[in-house]
């Protein structure tokens, strides 16, 4: 083989290798990143309520909050609470008010469920997040005549986080939105329930 042919072959294999490296790195970033929302939210695992990570900024002094999110809607207050389904299903309860509020569930693969306050029953949004196995167990344990009114959501993975967004449509609603975003309860569902 001529020297130029060898060089061409080396360049070609280098390019193929570059493609492989590129794909591997892109696929690996969500698992290796220390700045992603899943890793950052993990500090809220021990909390029973959501933690405000982005305060609404529509008027008046801005409330202090952990600010690791990139620029968000200034009118939205965002709270986060992480869950780990190893300890049992997680019950998420939000008391909705007059403001637009939405709950979304995120796993490693992205958002998998979302619901807004329009689905609230008597001012309360309640979800139970469980793994497929916990869901099957709950079905098997339930009696014939028992009727369960929980909204059960099967999570794609063990770990994830709940995001609550509350919209402060007017400057006067800022404090209320911040409070609502930080008051969603995420507790481990007891086995007796």
């Amino acid at each position: 083989m001529t020297p130029f042919g060898r060089f061409l072959l080396a360049t070609l294999s280098g390019l193929v290798l570059a493609g492989l490296v590129h794909l591997t790195v892109v696929l690996a970033i969500p698992y290796l990143s220390g700045r992603d929302a899943l890793t950052r939210s993990r500090s809220t695992l021990s909390n029973d309520t959501s933690v405000l990570v982005h305060p609404a900024r529509v008027g008046g002094p801005v409330e202090a909050a952990g600010d690791w999110l990139p620029p968000q809607d200034p009118a939205a207050a965002i709270g986060v609470c992480a869950y780990d389904l190893d300890d049992g299903p997680v019950r998420v309860t939000a008391e909705t008010g007059p403001l637009l509020e939405s709950l979304s569930l995120h796993g490693r693969g992205g958002a998998y469920y979302a619901v807004t306050d329009q689905a609230a029953v008597r001012g309360t949004l309640e979800l139970v997040i469980m793994t497929r196995r916990q869901f099957d167990e709950a079905l098997a344990e339930a009696g014939e005549d028992e009727r369960n009114r929980d909204v059960r959501v099967v999570a794609p993975g063990r770990e994830g986080y709940v995001v609550v967004r509350v919209l402060a449509a007017l400057p006067s609603q800022q404090a209320m939105a911040n409070k609502a975003a930080a008051s969603v309860s995420c507790t481990i569902d007891g086995p007796d329930e």
């Binding site: 690791w68 965002i78 939405s102 693969g109 992205g110 979302a114 619901v115 967004r165």
Partner: peptide, 16 residues
Amino acid sequence: RAIDARTGEVPLALGE
């Protein structure tokens, strides 16, 4: 997903 993981972005879910 990789972009969101690098910035810490929480995308607005479809239902939201």
